[in-house]
């Protein structure tokens, strides 16, 4: 239990650090926020000064930092320069399609990655291994924007099997594949080496010596152990996935946080960029916590590591 408590407490400095990094980075951005906000439209000095005071930009750095942190805690990151709306509200409206896409990508990535990885790892250096590992490598080398375009062209335009735009489930298929393919490559290679490693362990020899059937040895004894390293990597994989979503949304012209981020950067809409980055990190931290929980479920050594019993 102390382990979970420690993990929960560990989140606080991470969030704090993120907010600090974000604040510091945006302090250094060249250009005056107020003129950016005006969108380059010339305004009188008085209007500028009023805006500045309204945004609290006339206060000293430390004070602004404190108020930034205070507002960050309650999830308030100010107003978008462009849309003139609270950015938190904008993000809330757009978060759903991105989460759907990430989930779809995760399903494709995990499924395909596990399949290729297990097939390859069972008989290392066989032809099946060579084929699977080449497919995994190819998946990891595919630019996701290009694979997205190919999918659109082949399945959307030429064959017209699935809709390219829209918000239903069928419109999610192609983007999920494009997002997941990239992740599947990495994941498959991890699963493969993990299985090969597990099959070399002494406990596998014990399982053979017990007279167990090969299917049971692989399916129970090897797989359960082999899944531990890939699961620990799931957190990092997820950050790849979010990155992939940014690109995929762009290719498929889907609404979502990725599209929002690229637009915000191009428009120099700083509060929106700031908020998006903070939210992304928040999701990442949360997912990592979940991964830790999963990890404890699958590996008994973690649960008891902190309670010396011997």
């Amino acid at each position: 239990m102390a382990f979970f408590l420690r993990r929960l407490l560990g989140i606080i400095p991470i969030l704090f650090l993120t907010w600090t990094v974000v604040f510091v980075v945006f302090e250094f951005i060249p250009g005056d926020p107020v003129s950016l906000m005006m969108g380059g439209v010339p305004a009188s000095d008085e209007v500028m000064a009023n805006e500045r005071a309204r945004l609290g930009l006339d206060k000293p750095v430390l004070e602004r930092y404190a108020s930034f942190l205070g507002r960050a805690v309650v999830g308030d990151f100010g107003e978008s320069y462009k849309a003139r709306q609270p950015v938190t509200q904008m993000i809330r409206e757009q978060i759903r399609p991105t989460l759907e896409l990430a989930a779809g990508g995760l399903v494709v990535g995990l499924g395909l990655g596990l399949l290729l990885g297990v097939l390859a790892g069972l008989k290392p250096n066989s032809w099946l291994d060579t084929v699977c590992i080449f497919l995994a490598l190819a998946g990891g080398s595919l630019p996701s924007f290009w694979s997205g375009m190919l999918l659109i062209y082949v399945f959307g335009t030429v064959l017209a099997w699935v809709p390219i735009v829209g918000s239903g489930f069928s419109a999610l298929i192609l983007p999920s594949i494009a997002t997941g393919l990239f992740m599947a490559g990495d994941f498959a290679r991890l699963v493969r080496s993990s299985i090969i490693d597990a099959m070399k362990q002494n406990y596998i020899r014990t399982a053979y010596a017990k007279g167990l059937a090969p299917i049971r040895i692989v399916g129970k004894h090897a797989l359960r152990n082999a899944l531990i390293p890939p699961i620990t990597m799931l957190g990092i994989q997820l950050s790849t996935l979010i990155g992939g979503a940014v690109v995929t949304e762009n290719v498929f012209a889907r609404p979502g946080l990725g599209t929002m981020l690229v637009d915000a950067v191009l428009n120099k809409d700083m509060p929106l960029v700031q908020a998006l980055i903070v939210y992304t990190t928040g999701v990442y931290v949360l997912v990592n916590l979940l991964v830790d929980l999963l990890y404890v479920l699958i590996d008994p050594r973690i649960k008891y590591a902190r309670t010396p019993s011997r």
Binding site: N202, Y203, A207, H221, R224, N225, I228
Partner: peptide
């Protein structure tokens, strides 16, 4: 090696 001959997760 008795420690490694038993499967750690069962």
């Amino acid at each position: 090696e008795p420690m490694t001959s038993l499967n750690p997760v069962f």
